[in-house]
Simulated assay, not measured.
Amino acid sequence: MEWNPAQTLKFAGPRLQPGLDLITRLPDIAPKRIVDLGCGSGALAAQLAERWPRAAVTGLDRDRNALREARATHPDLDWVEADIADWAPAEPVDLIFSNAALQWVEGHEALFPRLLSFLAPGGVLAVQMPRNFDAPSHVLMRALATEPPWAGKIRLRRPPVGMPSAYYDLLAPRSAALDIWETEYLHVLKGDNPVLHWVRGTALLPVMAALSGPELDAFIATYASRLAQAYPPQPDGSTLFPFRRLLLLARVAA
């Protein structure tokens, strides 16, 4: 599943806003080393570098297309091609930041304590993940994947993002300070069936990897029709797309 810059950046503003909101909530620290896990095209890593110009900022992603865009746009930062699940820093990190990436990584019960263990004393883990998987955009896709002729051909995993309370139970005993909250963003989208174009850059990627040709075209046409009914346009032509996200800040003891 490769990142498509043109598709994803169609909604760059709404996609980046939760990460920007998370940055505004970061505590007043003086980090020496910052790592952005799942940095994508690098826009938020650049924001972190702007806030802390003396810090060494590294953006990490496994998608070469995303990193190519990041290197072209922000050549002054450090970009690393790697998988979050396998990543381990050579030395402790003061800020580990991740926006809309950890939902792709399995095993949060082990992953989050592992990330905390990489922090320097007083270090911060800052994470934003979608928690919108019971919305019509996802429910309709999962249901369609079980219907003929596509049944058994598409593996649509449910992302491992848990309830906020699960992250509290996991992180509170290991943190000196912990803040967890949810925000439901109401994205106002323009164009014809814009929710379809939104999910083309994210949730629809496994479908596009599993199917091709007329079979893929038929799936997308049926899905598009159902999406249009679930997300009808407003009188002014805009489409409202509610999207729930989970955000957390965990700080280890100094």
Rank of each mutant, 00 (worst) to 15 (best):
residue 2 E to H: 14
residue 6 A to S: 04
residue 6 A to L: 08
residue 7 Q to C: 13
residue 9 L to N: 11
residue 9 L to H: 11
residue 10 K to T: 08
residue 11 F to V: 14
residue 16 L to I: 03
residue 16 L to G: 02
residue 19 G to W: 00
residue 19 G to M: 01
residue 29 I to C: 05
residue 30 A to G: 11
residue 33 R to E: 07
residue 33 R to D: 04
residue 41 S to H: 02
residue 42 G to N: 09
residue 44 L to G: 00
residue 47 Q to R: 13
residue 50 E to R: 09
residue 51 R to L: 08
residue 55 A to N: 10
residue 56 A to E: 14
residue 57 V to S: 04
residue 66 A to C: 14
residue 67 L to S: 01
residue 67 L to C: 02
residue 68 R to W: 09
residue 71 R to H: 09
residue 72 A to W: 07
residue 75 P to K: 06
residue 77 L to V: 07
residue 77 L to M: 13
residue 78 D to L: 10
residue 79 W to A: 03
residue 79 W to C: 02
residue 83 D to Y: 08
residue 84 I to K: 00
residue 88 A to I: 04
residue 88 A to W: 12
residue 90 A to Y: 10
residue 92 P to S: 09
residue 94 D to Y: 00
residue 99 N to W: 06
residue 107 G to Q: 09
residue 108 H to P: 03
residue 110 A to G: 10
residue 111 L to Y: 05
residue 112 F to V: 02
residue 113 P to H: 10
residue 114 R to C: 14
residue 115 L to H: 08
residue 119 L to C: 12
residue 121 P to I: 09
residue 128 Q to L: 04
residue 133 F to H: 14
residue 135 A to Q: 02
residue 136 P to S: 07
residue 139 V to T: 11
residue 142 R to F: 02
residue 144 L to F: 03
residue 148 P to G: 01
residue 148 P to R: 03
residue 150 W to S: 07
residue 153 K to P: 02
residue 153 K to T: 03
residue 154 I to G: 01
residue 156 L to V: 04
residue 160 P to E: 12
residue 162 G to D: 08
residue 162 G to V: 01
residue 163 M to D: 15
residue 165 S to Y: 06
residue 169 D to W: 08
residue 181 W to S: 05
residue 182 E to P: 08
residue 190 K to Q: 15
residue 194 P to S: 06
residue 195 V to C: 13
residue 195 V to N: 00
residue 195 V to A: 04
residue 197 H to F: 13
residue 197 H to C: 09
residue 198 W to V: 07
residue 198 W to H: 07
residue 199 V to S: 01
residue 199 V to F: 01
residue 200 R to A: 11
residue 204 L to P: 00
residue 205 L to C: 08
residue 217 D to G: 12
residue 218 A to M: 12
residue 225 S to W: 07
residue 228 A to S: 15
residue 229 Q to K: 15
residue 229 Q to Y: 13
residue 236 D to S: 14
residue 238 S to T: 15
residue 239 T to W: 02
residue 239 T to C: 05
residue 241 F to H: 11
residue 247 L to A: 15
residue 248 L to T: 04
